[in-house]
Design a protein around this nucleic acid. Sequence first.
RNA 1: GGCAUCGUGGCCGAGUGGCUAGGCACAGCUCUGCAAAAGCUUGUACAGCGGUUCGAAUCCGCUCGAUGCCUCCA
Length: 493
Amino acid sequence: MQLYKNQPLKVHNSLTGKKELFQPINEGHIGMYVCGPTVYSNVHLGNCRTFMSFDMIFRYFKHLGYKVRYVRNITDAGHLENDADEGEDKIAKKAKLEQIEPMEVVQRYTVDFHNTLQKFNLLPPSIEPTATGHIIEQIEIIKEILEKGYAYEVNGSVYFDVEKFNETHEYGKLSGRKLEDMIANTRELTAQSEKKNPQDFALWKKADTHHIMRWPSPWGDGFPGWHLECTAMSTKYLGDTFDIHGGGMDLKFPHHECEIAQAEASNDQSPVNYWLHANMLTLNGKKMSKSTGNNIYPNEIFSGENGILSKAYTPAVVRFFMMQAHYTSILDLSDEALQASEKGYLRLMEALSTADQLSTGPKSDFDVEAWRQKCYDAMNDDFNTPILISHLFDAVKHINLIKEGMESISENDKTVLISTMRAFVHEVLGIEHQSEAKDDSQALNGVLELLIELRNQARANKDFATSDKIRDQLITLGIQLKDNKEGTSYSIK
RNA sequence: GGCAUCGUGGCCGAGUGGCUAGGCACAGCUCUGCAAAAGCUUGUACAGCGGUUCGAAUCCGCUCGAUGCCUCCA
């Protein structure tokens, strides 16, 4: 029996603003689309948070036994830089700036994107389609929308007619906006545009003579509008209506609003049942953004080379830090917060390895089954990872108590405890034990055994100068000696 | 200006009508040659002002403040 059958899951649906019981269109199967990055520069940490949140969601679905088709696109064309007429896409601009091919830009930053996500232990999506690989599909959708009368062509560009669409549909339902309000608010400026209304958005843009990224179309050479690719790729791989669409909060309007409009205009059905939005990561209380310069790159955190943090943090620590906040909450990154997370992370990892060595008794002093269900309850409540983690720490406490001989656990409960801990920490949260000085374990282990023996001899001889020297020197190397009743062990940070 | 979200103890961060989330830091205790690690114990916080209620941090209103979107952004 699949887990999902007895673990009812609630998700916060941005479309209704409510937590709803999640029910996939096809039992046991989930189609999920998440807006991926535009690959015109390195991913910053804020991007990573969003993808990490959906990675956790993807992982939990899989853990529950669902078969998930997870589509996350790569935007390698089409995002307009400026308004209307001077429209130029970011990738073309960057390519011109660096005097290289647009596809070189795309390649470089796609590789960076994959490398970074891999460090953060993100699972690859099932399909990672590119915008440039789906130009034909996008053109087809434009044709459909034109046929239905929700778009118009001007000088080789095609625009979506928002006002017309709004007569029969509800533009703004996702972001809680009303078209009348928007019109009332934009009366100033924005004249001399090709668009009938400022709210209209491009489905296809004419490429001027020196525009490098261009494709032929029924309306002349040009390139697709930036909302269209997601409609094309999501419906192609997941169907006209699919279960989940995710993305960053900042994409809610206009991007996702436009996706809904395009899909409804072309095939008259609401494309998505559950819209999920991940909230922003802030730095010094401000949103991280490439354009304002308020950002930090993942590699700067891993290396410690940045002007913001006091030290380096491993990807696992950063991931744990992010998992300690709910995905729908704004999270502020700071050195203090990362330090606190690092300690908590180490304690959790430590408990995970001591759990294996726990000796068992005839009965358990703690209700492992009830605890296990609490972990599921937390995740079933809109993927509440902070609560899950609080329960994991509850288990940490018991593990340590059992180790100290103050509580006991039965063989069976121990097995459940360990497998549940592992499942949630590794499988669902995607947190692995990463330590910097790990790989040379064989030799290092022997050396440490020797040092521990020498130290204990010194202690026996009351030569504390020597024993303390060994202990203190090791701690500066990140190796912690731990004296228990059974002897001395160590852990590497 | 419009729309939206939010304001929780020293810090981070859950929760949401009555039943002290959790992490980190701090303090005391146990352990220790001294420590560290680990364990135990302690913290009555919910922006302000009104209102609803037997009861609100949690619901409603207002005020103040923050953030996001309204132009490309995860």
